[in-house]
Structures are given as structure tokens and as C-alpha cells.
Simulated assay, not measured.
Amino acid sequence: MQTFEIIKKVTADDLDSLNHVNNVRYVQWVQDIAEKHWVHRASETVLNNHFWVMLSHHIQYKQPAVLNDNVTIKTYVMNSEGVTSTRMVEFYKNDILLAKSETKWCFMNKTNLKPTRISETIKNLFE
């Protein structure tokens, strides 16, 4: 399984009233890294013909992130079958796990806007 990662520096805009990274921001970061991973791995032809929509999202919070923390965000695809794929996203400060997310995504066809079976070619992008 192929891991993709980015680093985000926590800014004031990321914080909630407790001065921790807001829950909504974590969800946005899940969306952002999934999209970056997809764009990084898929060809222009695939990108022009397909996209993903999030079906479900589960996140576990372990430790807070605060202003100026550098958060390493790692993602990988656990499995893909039929029209859905399960993606994991993990958030770290140094080697400390801050949060972990599991999302289920549906693979879509841009022309007819309908779910599309995930081919071996698409699966291979993330292995």
C-alpha cells in the first residue's frame, strides 16, 4: 500500500474556541489530502473522466494540535472493491498520533455522474 503525505503548519484560522485545531479543519484536511493524492497518482485522462465523492467519514481524536504545530498528514487506501474505496488518514505531531480518520469514497464517472466500478488500473494507482 502506497502512503502519501503532506505537512500543514497550524495557523490561527485552524483553531477553535479551545485553541485546538477545529474538528471541521481535520475533515477539510482529509478532503484536501485525498484530492492531492488522487491528482498526484492519476493520469490526466483519468482525472478528466472520473472523480470521487465521500460517502462516510469516521474520525478518532487522540491528542490536540495547537498554533504553530507542524502536523504531518499521511494517507493510504486500505481497499477498493466495486465502486467504493476505503481511505485512511493519520495526523501526527512528530511521532505522536493526533487523530485517525477512515473514509469511504465512491468512484464516479464525470460524463454520466454515476458510480463506476473501480478498475484494476485505478486500484494499482494506490498499491
Score class of each variant (00 low, 15 high):
113 L>T: 05
95 D>H: 01
24 V>H: 15
53 V>Y: 08
96 I>Y: 09
83 V>Q: 07
29 W>V: 11
3 T>R: 08
48 N>A: 13
80 S>I: 03
110 K>T: 11
69 D>W: 08
88 M>S: 09
124 N>Y: 02
38 W>A: 07
2 Q>H: 15
77 V>K: 06
54 M>F: 15
62 K>N: 13
96 I>S: 14
83 V>P: 07
111 T>Y: 04
109 N>C: 15
102 E>F: 00
32 D>S: 04
11 T>N: 07
50 H>L: 05
123 K>R: 09
81 E>R: 11
2 Q>E: 15
48 N>T: 14
23 N>W: 02
102 E>I: 07
27 V>R: 09
106 C>N: 01
111 T>D: 15
41 R>V: 01
15 L>S: 13
49 N>R: 13
120 E>F: 00
87 R>K: 07
98 L>G: 06
75 T>I: 06
57 H>L: 02
89 V>F: 07
15 L>R: 05
79 N>W: 12
117 R>G: 01
4 F>Y: 15
45 T>I: 10
11 T>Q: 13
33 I>T: 06
20 H>D: 15
120 E>A: 03
49 N>F: 00
41 R>A: 05
70 N>G: 06
4 F>N: 03
122 I>G: 01
80 S>Y: 05
118 I>Q: 12
23 N>Q: 14
26 Y>Q: 09
97 L>T: 01
33 I>L: 11
63 Q>D: 05
42 A>G: 02
16 D>G: 09
53 V>F: 05
86 T>Q: 12
85 S>A: 04
108 M>A: 13
100 K>H: 12
84 T>S: 02
17 S>V: 12
18 L>N: 13
9 K>E: 15
43 S>M: 10
95 D>M: 11
78 M>C: 04
93 K>I: 00
32 D>A: 03
123 K>Y: 05
3 T>W: 10
47 L>G: 10
93 K>A: 05
12 A>C: 11
31 Q>F: 12
115 P>K: 05
82 G>F: 00
54 M>Q: 11
89 V>G: 06
101 S>V: 06
41 R>N: 10
22 N>E: 03
24 V>M: 13
99 A>N: 04
71 V>S: 01
80 S>L: 01
123 K>N: 05
77 V>P: 08
62 K>E: 07
98 L>M: 08
63 Q>M: 11
19 N>K: 14
72 T>P: 10
119 S>D: 03
8 K>N: 15
70 N>I: 08
51 F>Y: 12
98 L>R: 02
77 V>W: 12
51 F>A: 14
111 T>L: 15
103 T>L: 02
34 A>T: 11
38 W>I: 00
36 K>T: 01
73 I>A: 10
97 L>E: 03
